[in-house]
């Protein structure tokens, strides 16, 4: 990593200066890139949704105001566009999680230590989706098989409950100087602030959970 890159000044990597929207975008990108389901940013999400709600009502109020000048109408339009764009990010974040939850529903349910990463609504959806899929398998295949072939938990390889592929390669950007992590071959890797690496997801997952790094 050369000096120029450091000078490129990742000042926005500073937590205190990060706006809620920037945080949301960071978590959204993390979620999009990570193979595993990440902890839900419930507080952040609630704050943003609340803000969208307030902004929309203000905009609606201003829009119907006959006193508003052309200039103000222009500003309102900008605000509305921005709201739509924020909504897009929220939607994409929620949907990315939803798709992972469905893909790994049975895996998530089998390990209660993962439940904390999901919101209550998401956990409910994981449960009902897993039930739905199991029912579908039972009705269309298993029911017709001889009794001792009906289980969905055969001890076979590959296992019947699919976990996420944590060996997937990811691009990771250090937001600050990171504690060392170990690569699959045993070598130690210490990332400096602003450094970007390509590595397996499982190598850096603990750094990601502590917000030391972000996926890009």
């Amino acid at each position: 990593m050369n000096k120029d890159c450091h000078d490129f000044a990742f000042t926005d990597l500073d937590d205190t200066q990060e706006l809620p929207l920037q945080r949301l975008i960071r978590h959204w990108m993390n979620e999009r890139h990570a193979p595993d389901i990440l902890p839900i940013q419930a507080e952040l999400l609630a704050g943003i949704l609340d803000h969208i709600h307030k902004q929309s009502s203000t905009v609606n109020l201003l829009r119907t105001d006959p006193e508003a000048s052309g200039d103000e109408h222009f500003r309102i339009m900008l605000a509305q566009t921005e709201i739509e764009r924020v909504k897009f990010v929220v939607r994409s974040y929620v949907r990315t999680r939803l798709s992972k939850i469905e893909d790994y529903a049975r895996w998530i349910l089998s390990d209660s230590s993962l439940h904390g990463r999901l919101s209550e609504t998401e956990l409910k959806h994981a449960q009902s989706y897993a039930d739905l899929l199991t029912t579908h398998f039972e009705e269309s295949v298993l029911k017709a098989l001889p009794g001792n072939q009906r289980s969905l938990d055969d001890k076979v390889i590959p296992p019947m409950v699919t976990p996420p592929d944590i060996t997937k390669p990811v691009f990771v950007l250090a937001r600050r100087d990171c504690p060392p992590v170990y690569l699959p071959d045993g070598t130690k890797m210490e990332m400096k602030k602003g450094q970007i690496s390509l590595t397996q997801y499982r190598v850096i997952d603990s750094l990601l959970f502590q917000d030391h790094v972000e996926l890009v």
Binding site: H53, T81, F88, R91, R95, L98
Partner: peptide, 22 residues
């Protein structure tokens, strides 16, 4: 699942193209 979100945010809407214009 969708009904858990407020009316303003329809999570079913498209997520392929970010909105450029209102």
């Amino acid at each position: 699942f969708r009904s858990e979100f407020s009316d303003e945010l329809d999570i079913m809407a498209g997520i392929t193209e970010p909105p450029k214009d209102l």
